[in-house]
Design a protein around this nucleic acid. Structure first.
Lengths: 107, 107
DNA sequence: ACAAAAGGCAACCAGATGGTTGCGGAAAGG
DNA sequence: CCTTTCCGCAACCATCTGGTTGCCTTTTGT
């Protein structure tokens, strides 16, 4: 199940910061990311691999550097799971679920 | 931040199953939960403590046994975080965020 | 009164995880 | 050409984590 990888990826706070930053600054590199964080570039690289395994980010190598961008799709699965569980006792979340399963943007 | 605890709690698949089951069967006990899982009761008890730390479940002792129920609120924070990050590159998720921040049910 | 059943606490263990340092290779730039 | 810079790979380390077993307390039921 890919949802597994998504929740695993989101569990670490540093990884969430990385994802957050990539979402805000598409095309950023691992070195640039590490500059803003209290960890080394290699640590960031590891986090990027975990996020990539969950298909939350994708990197594209351009010559010497790799540019990372966020890919939204898997977050929907996670939101849908929470909405499904939540809907068992809170039907307001059920509305969220319907929204998450709603019309997809044309690919 | 309590969101931290939520993502941590949701990271483990067994714990998600536990939460799922509690959401479906309110008032269930740890022993009953363990019967349906390939782990011991103590392992389930540990998971329940993690879920309780994230305020996703609450237990009430009734004599010899403890009945567990799910508490929805913290899931909203997690969904809101994902929607916020997602909205940076996908405005369809921004609509979800508005929904999650919308009118709260009266407490 | 006493055995059975539920739960809590503690110790312990193997493996995953987040982090580091060190090195080697490939592209840029002078 | 040579240095710099960016990346990837590998080894290594400490800690966290999910799980177990063992024991003790409390409640229930006969």
């Amino acid at each position: 199940m890919p949802t597994d990888a998504v929740f695993t990826a989101l569990a670490d706070p540093t990884r969430r910061t990385v994802l957050d930053t990539i979402a805000a600054r598409a095309g950023i590199t691992a070195t640039e990311l590490a500059a803003d964080l209290p960890v080394t570039r290699q640590a960031v690289a590891k986090h990027l691999h975990v996020l990539a395994a969950a298909e939350l980010v994708a990197g594209e190598r351009a010559g010497r550097e790799t540019h990372w961008r966020a890919t939204p799709a898997p977050l929907n699965d996670a939101i849908a799971w929470m909405a499904r569980v939540g809907s068992a006792w809170d039907d307001r979340l059920a509305a969220l679920e319907r929204s998450a399963h709603g019309p997809r943007r044309a690919p």
